[in-house]
Design a protein around this nucleic acid. Structure first.
Lengths: 229, 229, 229, 229
DNA sequence: TATGAATGAGTCTTCATTCAT
DNA sequence: GATGAATGAAGACTCATTCAT
């Protein structure tokens, strides 16, 4: 669920809300969105209950329809907010001043770590893909959602190649997908994997193991083929 | 949806089937399972409709309850059938007689290709993870579901290390997860990625691109660190 | 509400329904239709409650959707049944053997009397016109709904003209509309008229008065202009 | 919908209206009434939405309750305004100086024409009759609503009878109902009739046809029975 | 074994109306 | 006087499941 207000962190005009936060549209919108985020992430679109969202947000159900129209548009709003948060975090990454290899390692670790602790984005995305991105396509903001990471990766690769520490011919977009994939899949499927392995993949040791494996795989996969000789 | 009857390909006994295929319990079970597979994969557990399964299978709704008890147990049956099919295909992989690098490449390509054309397994797994593997845990067959690929990977790694073409210290289970991840994520998220990239990632060119990228990343990532010198 | 089963008086196959009329689809359909007829006629389409129809028909609400799809199609079915009943009654009119003037009088009286005692057809029609005949247009049976009365009126007019008791130049369709109008309006607006006149227009005396007025107006309106001279 | 403000055309006092037409109670009342007239006429009482009235009138919903109490009393107000307008138009008819036959023809044509172009009165009345005139009975102004036409018809009939051009024994109230009926029914049921006839009864030709038919029927129906001999 | 009717508890959505400012 | 947020009760429609044959 959203940790900040996501896209809705408008400057609480409110009206002081002296008596107890009533009649504060922005707050109401935000509470609905947070509750919907939780519900959709944990139950999926079809399994989510508007009543549950109302209960959780402690907002009258009617307000949900007042502000968001219907369940579907509420889902779109949640998706947008989720993307917003992810993209904002990515934007804050500052890798340009780091050496190529260190930068790449940081990038891989950042991506992996972003999934730890909050799997709601993964759950929302999986659900959205079940619906063939139907809701995402409705979002006008979708164009700005291109990850800034791809550009960063491109820069790191170029610098690394120039410095002779990375091989050439690597497509930044593909690499971005791979870096995301190596972490995403682990967390997306953590319950089935844990069940089949008979081991809790969420514990510290397992996470550390996975993290270092990914770093190793990516960095080694980028080294120049002919070796330093 | 299932291409063969999965676990249910028991010998069609039928009971005279006087008027034309009626009263064939196994066929009925199989038809239900196939329809349920399709419905659950495309709608998720919550979004799936028992009525839709009855319609699609052309079997009376009452029979679904007769054979499978309830929606939940039907989902478990579908999950098992899906795992069965995947594991069967994996079992048929014969890599032992190939050179380590070729074997590894084959393994990566096999895994990637297994997702092309049928994403139902991915969809079922994603859904199952949404429910924290609740249904999978109910399955008694779950212990036998450990992928044979992990053992195969272990063998290839050992042979490659011995031959000096692979570095050491690579955990087969982690590598298996990585190989799966690199393909799985791409297909799992193909709709959202296509939307955001503004490009159809399902077309031949895109698939070929992704496939060779993965092969390159994994094989390069396994080379000995010091180069062959 | 329907006095017989309307269009749905299919030959009760049923299954003996030994225990108490359960599991009798035709009976269920008919009960729903009768209750819907009542509800729609008395509340209008928008004011009608599906729950009320379920309660009144003592049929599970789910069955209404099972048999009729939705509220709108149920309304269409009611409309069709109502037209059916009216048209059936009209068909039974046998005026050909009567003298033209007597036949015309019978026709006028029949039309007027058809409104006495059951205003549901009027109420349904008024409501349907509020919706610009939206539902009627959906009915495939609509073409056969042309009133048989128009043809009968044509015949009577022709015979009367030949016998010199009716003037010529009267369009049968227009006359049919007029005959219907003279009774329909009275009953359609009987509550507002009664309120404004401060008199109960439903009592016997008022009905008799209106009936004879209409007969007089129509028959006098048809007499040849130049008199019998 | 109302073409003038109906009963609410009180002198616009306004209260300075500093910034531009705000705080003008009478204007607000009139806007609400006009919007409600439209909504109730087109959707019926049950189908009408208070929100739609607020939107259409561009007046805050709260004001509707402030000025009219509730939906029901608003409907009463609309009914009164509609009757007011009709009665005002009737009052303006000046037939006393015309010859009886010409006067009667004018009366019939006036009534018919009053329905052309605005069917909202018909729709409101039909709806009100669905509710058994419940709202009309609440209106204190109801006694003054007796149509002035009945008196006029009485006068014309008397003059015609005296002049030997009309037969006697015709009740003015019944005749008024008939004259209204012949036009009202046509327009009230114009959509169902058009659908069943497969012809647009609203076009010029159809209207002219109907108009002259009605005039012919009424005038011929009033001629003395024995002819001028 | 097989069938289709029947059911009660939801599920999304809408409504008239009131509250706080 | 005017505004827009807020509410609880209901409304149409759906679902997994069971019954009767």
């Amino acid at each position: 669920m959203p940790r900040n207000g996501g896209a809705n962190e408008a400057p609480r005009r409110g009206k002081r809300a002296a008596n107890g936060a009533r009649r504060d549209p922005d707050a109401t919108r935000a509470k609905i969105l947070a509750a919907a985020w939780h519900e959709f992430a944990h139950k999926g679109f079809a399994g989510a209950r508007v009543d549950a969202i109302a209960d959780r947000s402690r907002v009258n159900k009617r307000m949900i329809y007042h502000y968001y129209g219907d369940k579907e548009r509420l889902f779109v709003a949640v998706l947008e907010a989720a993307y917003d948060r992810v993209r904002s975090a990515e934007q804050a990454l500052d890798l340009e001043h780091m050496a190529p290899e260190a930068a790449m390692q940081r990038m891989v670790e950042f991506t992996f770590d972003s999934f730890v602790g909050d799997r709601t984005f993964i759950q929302l995305l999986n659900n959205e893909n079940l619906y063939k991105a139907r809701h995402l396509k409705k979002s006008a903001r979708v164009r700005q959602m291109h990850s800034p990471l791809i550009g960063m990766i491109g820069g790191i690769l170029r610098r690394g190649e120039a410095a002779g520490v990375f091989r050439g011919g690597v497509d930044p977009a593909q690499l971005w997908i791979s870096i995301a994939a190596l972490g995403y899949f682990y967390f997306s499927n953590i319950h089935t994997l844990s069940t089949i392995f008979g081991r809790d993949l969420e514990d510290e040791a397992a996470l550390a193991e996975r993290r270092s494996h990914i770093v190793g795989l990516v960095l080694d996969g980028l080294r120049p083929r002919a070796g330093p000789a």
